[in-house]
Simulated scan of single mutants.
Amino acid sequence: MLDTRALSRQPGSSKSKRLSVPAPEDFGVEMVGVPEGAAIELDLRLEAVLEGVLVTGTATVPLEGECARCLDPITSEFDADFQELFVYPDTRSGGNADDDELRLEDDLIDLEPVLRDAVLLALPLSPLCRDDCPGLCPDCGVRLADVGPDHHHETADPRWAALQGLAGDVAPVPPAGGSGDTEPRGSIDRRDGKQEG
C-alpha cells in the first residue's frame, strides 16, 4: 500500500518516491515472468488532482523464463511505464466511479493491479534468447545454434515408407509413346510416300 496523506488532498501538490517491493506470485505469462519475491524497483510521482491522486511511474522488474525456440533459460530486466488515477471515494466522482476505476482506501493506494496490467500486457508471449535464434532441430532436438547451418537429416516422407521395399522388385516401365515397336500415328509410309492416318 502506498500512503498519499503527505499530499493533503491539495490539487497541484506532488511528491516523488522510489520504492523497492517484492513481486507477488504468478506475476508473468506462460514462458516468462517475474520470480516471486524478486525486488521490483518503482520510480513514482504522485500528483493530487480534484478527483483523487494521479500516479505516474516506471517499474523495473527482473525477468526469468525460457526461449520459445530453443528452450534455453532467459534472464533480463524490463521497464514498464504506467499512469493511473485513483479517485477519492467520498467525492462526487468517486461516488459515481465505475467498477473498473481504482479508488483510494483511507488515503492508501494498492498498486498491485496497476503493476500487473503494466507488466503483463507488455511481456512477450514468445520470448527469444536472441532475435535470430534458430531454435531446435525438428528431427533430433539438438540446438541449431550449436551445430551450424549444415546440420540436416536424410529423412523419407513417411507416407511413402511402405513403398520403399517395392522399388527393387519392379522393372521400370517405359513411358507411353517412347521407343517401342509401334510407329507413332501420322507416320509416313516410305514405300509409297503416302501418309497414314
Results as ranks from 00 to 15, higher is better:
residue 116 R to A: 03
residue 162 A to Q: 07
residue 163 L to V: 08
residue 125 L to M: 14
residue 152 H to Q: 12
residue 112 E to H: 13
residue 110 D to N: 13
residue 135 G to C: 02
residue 154 E to Y: 07
residue 161 A to Y: 03
residue 106 D to P: 00
residue 120 L to I: 15
residue 153 H to Y: 10
residue 148 G to V: 08
residue 143 R to W: 06
residue 147 V to L: 04
residue 113 P to K: 05
residue 109 I to S: 04
residue 171 A to P: 15
residue 133 C to G: 01
residue 158 P to C: 12
residue 133 C to F: 02
residue 149 P to E: 05
residue 128 L to N: 01
residue 137 C to E: 02
residue 132 D to F: 00
residue 147 V to F: 00
residue 115 L to S: 02
residue 135 G to T: 06
residue 106 D to E: 15
residue 160 W to Q: 01
residue 143 R to D: 14
residue 140 C to S: 08
residue 159 R to L: 03
residue 110 D to W: 05
residue 155 T to I: 15
residue 119 V to C: 05
residue 171 A to C: 08
residue 140 C to K: 11
residue 105 E to S: 13
residue 141 G to M: 08
residue 168 G to D: 13
residue 120 L to C: 09
residue 109 I to Q: 02
residue 164 Q to V: 13
residue 103 R to Y: 09
residue 116 R to I: 03
residue 126 S to Q: 11
residue 142 V to W: 06
residue 136 L to W: 00
residue 153 H to P: 02
residue 158 P to A: 13
residue 135 G to L: 01
residue 156 A to T: 14
residue 121 L to W: 08
residue 111 L to Q: 04
residue 107 D to P: 06
residue 103 R to K: 13
residue 147 V to H: 02
residue 122 A to C: 07
residue 154 E to T: 15
residue 117 D to Q: 14
residue 125 L to Y: 09
residue 163 L to K: 03
residue 168 G to P: 06
residue 153 H to S: 08
residue 118 A to S: 10
residue 151 H to M: 07
residue 108 L to E: 07
residue 169 D to I: 08
residue 122 A to W: 05
residue 123 L to E: 01
residue 142 V to Q: 10
residue 140 C to Y: 10
residue 111 L to R: 05
residue 121 L to T: 13
residue 122 A to L: 13
residue 124 P to H: 08
residue 131 D to L: 01
residue 157 D to Q: 04
residue 127 P to Q: 02
residue 121 L to Q: 12
residue 106 D to M: 13
residue 158 P to I: 15
residue 151 H to G: 09
residue 136 L to N: 00
residue 138 P to Y: 04
residue 146 D to N: 12
residue 135 G to D: 00
residue 170 V to S: 09
residue 123 L to V: 03
residue 152 H to R: 12
residue 142 V to S: 10
residue 145 A to R: 12
residue 147 V to A: 04
residue 129 C to I: 04
residue 171 A to D: 13
residue 146 D to K: 10
residue 146 D to H: 13
residue 141 G to W: 09
residue 170 V to K: 15
residue 144 L to E: 06
residue 114 V to E: 04
residue 147 V to Q: 02
residue 167 A to R: 15
residue 155 T to R: 11
residue 163 L to Y: 04
residue 128 L to M: 05
residue 146 D to V: 09
residue 162 A to I: 12
residue 126 S to N: 11
residue 148 G to S: 07
residue 113 P to F: 05
residue 139 D to G: 04
residue 160 W to D: 03
residue 163 L to A: 11
residue 110 D to H: 05
residue 131 D to Q: 11
residue 119 V to Y: 00
residue 123 L to S: 02
residue 170 V to G: 09
residue 164 Q to L: 12
residue 113 P to M: 06
residue 170 V to P: 06
residue 107 D to N: 14
residue 149 P to D: 05
residue 133 C to E: 03
residue 135 G to V: 03
residue 130 R to Q: 15
residue 111 L to F: 08
residue 108 L to A: 07
residue 154 E to H: 13
residue 170 V to L: 15
residue 123 L to N: 00
residue 124 P to V: 11
residue 131 D to W: 00
residue 160 W to T: 05
residue 161 A to D: 14
residue 113 P to A: 07
